[in-house]
Design a protein around this nucleic acid. Structure first.
Lengths: 302, 302
DNA sequence: TGCGGTGATAAGAAATAGTTATGAACAACT
DNA sequence: AGTTGTTCATAACTATTTCTTATCACCGCA
């Protein structure tokens, strides 16, 4: 049996402090023979005498003294381990890796990160911004803990919770501001500017117009909502953007915003994570924070 | 049951490495259920899930990952502990605190320290030079590990080993070189210069002359052999010094050295340490080194 | 839907750590 | 010197912990 245990070290440490088997044993809440045996075992394990037993004193040997220093350091580290665990108890600690789709990230991240760090102040947040399929993959592979995406995802290994719905609004050249709001059919006849393939928002917009990806030439791809809005300002066409993006994207562009008539186009944004992730409670908490952040955003921008 | 054990940490570490209960259990040479239970216990102990178990993968949680770093550090320290013990196995390590009487120290220490460090290169040597009673006290109180003194000490709690005998020689003014060597009786009639009270060498010299400490006025105290020799050179009297001191002490003094007739005065120098000191073997080794050092000194100076 | 692989659970066996009682060594005190 | 008290070691036994084998439940996959 070659196994060193923490018990050995604890008893050893107690004995170094008390210099007396009986009292050290008391301190460890065991009997004196038990301590004697453990110390003996430790000495055999290490192959060196650690204590010099004389009739009235128990003294460390030179090596024992060297050892005591290291042992104390180790025990300190172990305590730290336990404290660390206690501190993180039922709370998110360490590192939260979260993925966000590009049509949400720029508008919500500042709020989200702010609110999360406010509530979990010893949490490092890492954000990945990329397209939904990539997020799902990263999630499955364990590279991120959760993702904020448009629902549904319908991946059996993931849990999804809805956070909020967001409407899409029409962005058109400023001079069109007075024109009637087009309905889906009319929209599909207009020069529609959309995000390039892969963005879920593209599909959501197309679906509103009852279009599939096809019909080339009739729509133009942009790599970001900002680009799209700038193109609209330049009179190239019209586009849809999520309501949340309005404040940021139209601030410096001469475009007009129009709400659609009911049924308004919209999507549900939600958060997803692995079913197997044992931090479900904590992630649920996070999702609430994100929900609140969205709520706040809507209030200020609405 | 609040007790964290190294076993927990070892198993935890193995599982982080293998990401698979079965294989990790193999690596630990235990069965899979045993590992499962220990991990479960560890998680309960820390109050946090450390692993995310899905059907095909075992992944660390965020906190688990933080923990793994610290755990690895701890295990590294523990390994180091064991290595340290193994390295010092049956060898003196760390610190050797040795006491030496003043009539030996200046002549032998350079040799002794040199020889010891040559053989035990990771040994820090601390030397205390003081009178025998103080050395014995320091020894008993555990402030030093061994002492080099004149035997016998006859202290039941100490072991003593003889190292070598050293003769005393007469130191007298240069102009007396041709005179016959005095015998003890004659010596007691001469102006005898001796070390102050407390030095064992004083008593040893007196004993040779069949004198006790009494007879005031007939002898003069000096605080070191160097002082005594200088006083002899100044024609104040004669003195005895250990043979070993001749080379050093008479180098720059105009005195003459005379060997006594048999039976020559001498003393036995030995090393002593606590009976209870478990490093008896190692100290015996050290005593051999000291013996060799003395041998060497005699050769060069004889 | 059954199969292979995986982790959890249960019950009993093995190993470990603890207990009390006692012994041996030694210092301290008549 | 004999006695007493203190201290650590040893022995024999008991309690607890840890491990093993057998089995289950779950999930992804053909």
């Amino acid at each position: 049996m070659n196994n060193l245990t923490l018990k050995h070290l604890r008893y050893f440490e107690a004995l170094t402090r008390h210099g007396h088997f009986g009292r050290a044993a008391d301190a460890c809440a065991i009997s004196q023979p038990a301590l004697s045996m453990q110390i003996k075992e430790l000495e055999e394990l290490l192959g060196t005498k650690l204590f010099e037993r004389s009739a009235r004193k128990v003294r460390l040997t030179g090596f024992g003294e060297d050892l005591a220093l290291k042992v104390r350091a180790i025990m300190h580290s172990v305590d730290e381990l336990e404290n660390m665990a206690r501190a993180s108890h039922n709370r998110l600690t360490g590192r939260l890796r979260i993925g966000v789709i590009p049509t949400i990230a720029p508008y919500m991240l500042p709020q989200i990160v702010g609110n999360i760090t406010r509530k979990h102040n010893n949490l490092d947040i890492y954000v990945h911004e990329t397209l939904t399929p990539k997020l799902i993959q990263k999630l499955a592979e364990g590279w991120i803990d959760a993702a904020i995406v448009a629902l549904p995802i319908s991946e059996p290994s993931l849990v999804e919770v809805a956070l909020f719905d967001e409407n899409f609004v029409l962005v058109r050249p400023k001079e069109d501001a007075a024109k009637p709001v087009p309905n889906p059919e009319m929209l599909s006849e207009m020069k529609l500017l959309l995000l390039e393939d892969g963005h879920c928002f593209r599909d959501q917009a197309l679906s509103f117009c009852n279009m599939n990806a096809a019909k080339p030439g009739e729509l133009l791809d942009g790599s970001s909502l900002t680009t799209l809005v700038q193109m609209v300002a330049a009179g190239i066409g019209v586009t849809l953007i999520p309501e949340m993006a309005v404040a940021v994207e139209t601030r410096s562009a001469s475009v007009s915003i129009a709400q659609f008539n009911d049924p308004k186009p919209s999507r549900t944004i939600g958060m997803v994570w692995r079913k197997t992730n044992p931090l479900a409670n904590q992630l649920l908490q996070i999702s609430e924070i994100v929900k609140d952040a969205a709520e706040g955003l809507r209030k200020t921008s609405g």
